[in-house]
Simulated scan of single mutants.
Amino acid sequence: MTQIDYFLALQSPYVYLAGRRPAEIAAKHGAKLVYRPLDVAQLFPRTGGKVREERHPSRNDYGTQDRARQARKLGVTLDAAPLFRSANPAPAAYALIAAQAAGGGDLAGFVQAIGRALWAEGKDFSDDEVIRAALAANGFDPAVADRGMLMAAETYAANLEDAVAAGVFGVPFFVVGDQKFWGQDRLDDLDLYLQGKL
Rank of each mutant, 00 (worst) to 15 (best):
D178F: 11
N88D: 14
A81K: 15
V144E: 08
R36Y: 03
A23E: 14
Q112W: 13
D39R: 12
E24W: 11
F110K: 01
G105R: 14
L198C: 03
W182F: 15
A81G: 00
L194A: 06
R36H: 02
K123P: 02
D39V: 05
F84Y: 14
A117W: 13
F7I: 08
Y6A: 05
N138V: 07
R67G: 00
A137N: 15
G105A: 10
D124F: 13
M149Q: 13
P37Q: 03
Y6M: 07
L160V: 09
K123E: 11
R67W: 08
A92Q: 04
A157K: 15
G19Y: 07
G183P: 04
G167P: 10
L83S: 01
Q11F: 09
L190V: 10
L74G: 00
F125Q: 06
K28V: 00
L83H: 06
Q100G: 02
G75H: 09
I4P: 02
G19L: 07
R186K: 09
R132G: 05
R21L: 11
H56K: 10
K50M: 12
E24C: 00
P57Q: 05
G109L: 11
F84E: 01
L187W: 15
P89I: 06
D141M: 08
V176M: 12
E121K: 09
L160S: 04
A80F: 08
Q70L: 10
G75K: 11
A163H: 12
A18Q: 06
G170I: 15
P142K: 13
G167H: 13
Y156R: 09
G30K: 10
Q184N: 12
